[in-house]
């Protein structure tokens, strides 16, 4: 199976401490590390960049946020992604104050704008992996 044949999946050789994030996604929960001093971070890192703590727990996130920035991809990396083009890749600022990257679905790409309220959605892309995306939501 070459790089051009199918959409990418998370790498099997990820560090062990990343796995709880993916296990939570499998259970349709978006989680991030929270260090003993209450600092949230994403993506997983082995040390808190704010305080140096190497201890953490996984905290469930609200999944609600707004679009910080985005692009509409017209030329995709591979034919498998090109079939979906044009599609939106957004950086979403979550209510908890951290940013995550994901697709925005459930609306026309042309309707997406910075500041747009979104919420997380989950897609089981294989027996093993679940990815998250975002869909528009009504502002609170």
């Amino acid at each position: 199976m070459g790089i051009l044949d199918e959409k990418f999946l998370p790498p099997d050789d990820m560090p062990e401490f990343h796995r709880p994030f993916w296990e939570a996604l499998k259970a349709h929960r978006l989680e991030a590390q929270e260090c003993e001093n209450g600092h949230l971070r994403f993506i997983p890192t082995e040390i808190c960049p704010r305080c140096g703590s190497q201890d953490w727990t996984w905290r469930r996130l609200s999944g609600r946020g707004s679009i910080y920035t985005f692009t509409v991809v017209h030329r995709a990396p591979t034919p498998a992604y090109q079939a979906d083009a044009p599609y939106v890749v957004a950086h979403v600022e979550l209510e908890e104050g951290i940013r995550v990257i994901g697709n925005v679905t459930g609306c026309e790409p042309g309707a997406v704008h910075i500041g747009m309220p979104v919420e997380v959605a989950f897609e089981d892309v294989s027996e093993r992996w679940t990815l998250y995306s975002f869909t528009p939501r009504e502002a609170a």
Binding site: G2, K7, M14, F70, T71, V73, P77, T78, Y81, V89
Partner: peptide
């Protein structure tokens, strides 16, 4: 193949959502 491999130069996981090198900079431009 070159463009596909370049897409994977992104940081871990962002390329799962179909990012490319162009997209990585487009979000900054936006």
């Amino acid at each position: 193949a070159a463009i596909a491999h370049m897409a994977k130069l992104g940081t871990p996981y962002e390329w799962l959502w179909g990012t490319t090198r162009v997209a990585d900079h487009a979000v900054i431009a936006q």
